[in-house]
Every structure is written in structure tokens, then in C-alpha cells.
Write a protein that binds this DNA or RNA. Structure first.
Length: 299
DNA sequence: GGCCAGGTGGCCA
DNA sequence: TGGCCACATGGC
């Protein structure tokens, strides 16, 4: 099978090792990591590509693409590069964030520990919503179990070099499932309803990443999303942070964020919402990155 | 055994 | 608006 190789230059403040470590800690059936690379399938307009990502010794990102469907074109090549740039958030300039963070009581420790980390995204907005909804209220290890069951019950299994990879279930399929079919994987009935509802909205293109990008106003975006049943302020901000990439997305009521602030600030209790507003006022415009680095302390 | 988990909607004053 | 409560299940 033909393999195409592309190079992407990396920002100075990008550490492949730190980002690989992060991905390793969140590995699910959708991608795999080893000591030096990340691999996964991606689908573009129904065409399948298998990609392998690693770093060259002159610090460039190497992307090898196997043309599984025999449909590789310059157009797909461009889309694959965009996908990688987005997944690793390569196009943001973080100098201003690091300048703020170095002098910040709560951020200086996480940025020194994880310097070079990027907000590794969830490019598929349906996946982002499902992951957020699954993670509501329950502990993260149980949320991961549910996600694993979700992917393996309703997703598509592919094999590459004898190893399993999964494609995330399509919103169209999930929208068509019965409540009982979804309930069997162990989530609450309400979560089944929320997920089926968002699947329907995405399948009908009433909600899309592009539309949310175009709003370009976080308050509008949150207002629009929280009108949907099952999407509260936390979920809306989570999706805007991990997928749509509003730099000022801020899930302020996130328990993990509270624990991270307690740890980073050596506090004897978790800070209150008002205290967090006070703390975060120094991060204006970079709340998403502040949150992402703080999360890395506790997850 | 009880309480807390990467919350949210519904109900009631 | 503000204060409860249920929700599925796992980990500690």
C-alpha cells in the first residue's frame, strides 16, 4: 500500500514528548501510542486513511499516511494536515499565555512541569459531546469505561497490523437507537436521552462545529448550547474548550479544576466559585489553556 | 457502608 | 433566584 510522508514544522514551545505522554494517559480505542508515535484511522468524505505521527530529529512532525481506500489526492493531503494541526492545536501562539503563567501563583508550577503541552483536541464534535456527557457527575475512570463500551458497542472496528482500532459511532446511528439499547452499557437513562438528543441535532446539522466557530462569541455559543437538554454550562464550556477551541472557554464548576487549584495553590480546601473568578481574572483570553494545564496536574 | 465522582434538570418555596 | 434531590455505578 502506498505511504505518503509529510512534514510539519513545530512551534518552539511544543514538546512532542509531553504531548505524547498526555495522549498515552488518555488512550482509548480510537488511537494508539507507543514510545515514539501515535497512530489512528481517520475518515474524510467516506475515505479511509491510516496515519502515523512521530517527530524527526530536527524537531518536525512527521505524518505518514497509508492510502487505505486508494483515494489519496492533494485535497485529502491538505485536509489531513489541517486535521493534525487542529488536533495538536499547532496554530495558536502561546507566548502571551506563558508570560502570564510564569508570574501566576497557580500556573507557574503546572507550566514548568508540562512546558510544551498543547490542548490536544477532540476534532469530532459528536465525540466531544458524548465524552462530556458521559463525564458528567461520575468519576473519570467510570466515564472511561462507559466511553470504551460506547465505542465498542456502536463503533466500527478496523484492524491494522493485527491491532484493533475503532471509529467513533456516527450521530446518525446513535440517534436511531432505542433507549434500552443505549441503557445497556450502564449509563443513566437521562444520559441516554441527552446523547440521543445531541446525536439527532448533529445528524440534522442543527449543531455543527463550523456554526459554533462562526458565532465567535463565547456567551452566544454557551447560550445556544445550554438551551439543549443535558447541556449545562460545564458541558458547553468543555466542548468549546476541547473541540471548538474558544481560547476563553472556562468550565468554572469543574471538580477537577477545583482539585487542581487546591493542589497548585497549596490551599487547605477547594476554592469557591467566587474565589476562582478572582484567580482566573488574571488569565483573561487564556482560560482554556490555564484549565488544560491545571487538569494535567490531577489527571 | 457512605460519600464523592470532569453535572443537569426538575421541583418547590 | 436559591436550595434540594435523583440519577447509575465504581473507587476508596
Amino acid at each position: 500500500m502506498t505511504v505518503y510522508k509529510q512534514l510539519l514544522s513545530l512551534p518552539e514551545d511544543f514538546s512532542f514528548r509531553i504531548n505524547l505522554d498526555y495522549l498515552k494517559s488518555t488512550e482509548d480505542g480510537l488511537f494508539r501510542t507507543d514510545q515514539e508515535s501515535i497512530t489512528r484511522f481517520i475518515v474524510l468524505d467516506g475515505n479511509l486513511f491510516f496515519i502515523k505521527i512521530y517527530v524527526s530529529n530536527n524537531n518536525r512532525l512527521v505524518i505518514e499516511t497509508e492510502d487505505v481506500s486508494q483515494s489519496y489526492t492533494k485535497q485529502f493531503e491538505r485536509q489531513i494536515m489541517l486535521y493534525i494541526r487542529d488536533w495538536f492545536d499547532l496554530d495558536i501562539h502561546l507566548e502571551p499565555f506563558y508570560t502570564i503563567a510564569k508570574q501566576d501563583e497557580y500556573l507557574k508550577m503546572p507550566i514548568s512541569k508540562f512546558y510544551g503541552l498543547r490542548n490536544i483536541g477532540i476534532p469530532d464534535i459528536f465525540e466531544a459531546f458524548v465524552w462530556a456527557i458521559l463525564g458528567q457527575q461520575i468519576n473519570l475512570s467510570f466515564a472511561s469505561t462507559l466511553k470504551d463500551r460506547f465505542i465498542k458497542n456502536y463503533g466500527k472496528r478496523l484492524i491494522h497490523n493485527g491491532e484493533d482500532y475503532w471509529l467513533f459511532p456516527s450521530p446518525r446511528l446513535i440517534a436511531s437507537l432505542s433507549m434500552d439499547e443505549l441503557f445497556k452499557i450502564g449509563m443513566s437513562r437521562r444520559k441516554c436521552e441527552y446523547i440521543r438528543g445531541i446525536a439527532r441535532l448533529i445528524a440534522n446539522n442543527q449543531i455543527s462545529r463550523e456554526k459554533l466557530v462562526q458565532l465567535s462569541d463565547i456567551n452566544l455559543a454557551v447560550k445556544q448550547l445550554t438551551a439543549i437538554k443535558g447541556i449545562g454550562p460545564w458541558t458547553a464550556n468543555y466542548v468549546l474548550l476541547r473541540c471548538v477551541r474558544y481560547p476563553n472557554a472556562f468550565p468554572i464548576n469543574d471538580v477537577g479544576l477545583h482539585n487542581a487549584l487546591k493542589l497548585a495553590g497549596s490551599l487547605d480546601r477547594k476554592p469557591s466559585i467566587d474565589e476562582i473568578k478572582q484567580i482566573a481574572s488574571a488569565w483573561e483570553g487564556y482560560e482554556s489553556y490555564a484549565t488544560f494545564f491545571l487538569w494535567r496536574l490531577v489527571y
